[in-house]
Design a protein around this nucleic acid. Structure first.
Lengths: 229, 229
DNA sequence: GTGACCAATAAGTAGTACTTTTTAGCGGGG
DNA sequence: CCCCGCTAAAAAGTACTACTTATTGGTCAC
């Protein structure tokens, strides 16, 4: 029986982020232990993790109180995942897309200065992969290249704070593909932009890489506005 | 005796982020318990938290292995704090400044669209506060207004992912003030830019707010290049 | 030499006993 | 009648112990 702790966490975490327990409501460790049929030890470890995500705060005599959403560590990958699979998925998707639109252009500009030849090769490879899979409903294959492309750009920026944003991009793109456009082929203009970004980065043209990437993210924002205004 | 858990965490966390335990090295819970003079229970809770930050990974029979830096949750406020107070402080300071330069201009643009009248008032208040404290070595007072200004902008953007960046900005600005320029008064041009950003946001001029804020963050980047090339 | 089994090890789980802190209620005094 | 302080209870924190499970590495047999 491996992962009592993980199981309880994956029940409690999503419940909290979904707003099932409103901010200020109190959980008691003993009750949780009974409800999930584990020992108090396990519950306390789960609580510690939730506390480290600032989803809850544990105070003696009071109990474990749920914190308001403003307190949450919204950059914690698990919090992001939980929110994406829960009630405020649209809100989360929008805020992540805006984050992308801020980070990715700057990352592309840096990548133009810092990318290694191997990374440049990967970029063109994935850009061409996108071209190849952009028609005929090969959406899943296209998605793989798209995500990989953006991950390489973020990593090639050389900034350690940008690399983890790759997960955000992956989540946003996956969400988009699997949610609505599932049927239509991707926008040809977007595909071309990716190819041109790869070129700009390889050429070391930071300004152009930044500007083109801004066009990509602006497209993503517009798409979101059309879909969920 | 409040906070055994916190004490051990604040010893172990910084030690790991400082690279004291190289990636792949193994900690054993029992040994940690002896070394810090706490029970294994406490150690295990600490390990769980470190695990949730992806600083370590715990595997049966093997022990608790330290993960490479690429795995770390670099957005976790505690990880940021630990790294800033440790060995790779310069590296962290640089990467945070770059992050700022990506996020803040976009946030300012959004703030121009979304800021409430109250937030606009706060902005002008802090901008004027910066002007007032920009001369005569009142660096601490200036810092307070500066940090508050940027926090309001980030919050006024209305994007939940931007608000926590306020902590990043606070850390960067505090680091700058307390580290070197401690003696010189702040750059008058930067002060003016803040005032103009406040105006642009109040006027609802997103493009100008974004551009001016980009000037501010570019200044911060240049400053860093001069200081630690 | 290879494969399977067994033993040792270290973390995971559980249960229990005890401590600490905090709050709320009760009583006395102003 | 209100306010202050003390006390008791409640709930989390800490600790210790016993037991379980999984993993790994070595040994033995084929």
């Amino acid at each position: 029986m491996s992962g009592q702790h993980a199981r309880v966490l994956d029940t409690l975490g999503p419940a909290i982020t979904a707003g099932e327990y409103p901010p200020g409501s109190v959980l008691r460790t003993e009750e949780l232990a009974r409800r999930h049929e584990v020992s108090r030890t396990v519950v306390r470890e789960v609580i510690r993790v939730l506390e480290s995500m600032r989803l809850v705060e544990s105070r003696r005599r009071v109990g474990v109180t749920v914190l308001p959403a403003e307190e949450w560590n919204v950059y914690d990958p698990r919090v992001i995942r939980w929110r994406l699979s829960g009630a405020d998925r649209p809100r989360q998707l929008r805020s992540l897309t805006v984050l992308r639109s801020a980070v990715e252009p700057v990352a592309a500009g840096l990548a133009a200065r810092n990318a290694t030849p191997e990374q440049c090769a990967e970029l063109t490879e994935h850009a061409l992969g996108m071209v190849a899979t952009s028609r005929g409903g090969q959406l899943e294959a296209y998605l793989v290249h798209d995500v990989a492309f953006h991950r390489v750009v973020l990593r090639a920026s050389g900034n350690e704070m940008f690399t983890p944003i790759g997960d955000v991009v992956a989540a946003v793109l996956a969400g988009r593909t699997r949610h609505h456009v599932m049927f239509e082929d991707p926008d040809p203009a977007a595909v071309t932009l990716h190819v041109r970004v790869a070129e700009a980065i390889r050429a070391g043209d930071a300004a152009r890489a930044e500007s083109l990437t801004r066009d990509i993210t602006l497209g993503a924002l517009r798409e979101l506005d059309v879909l969920a205004p």
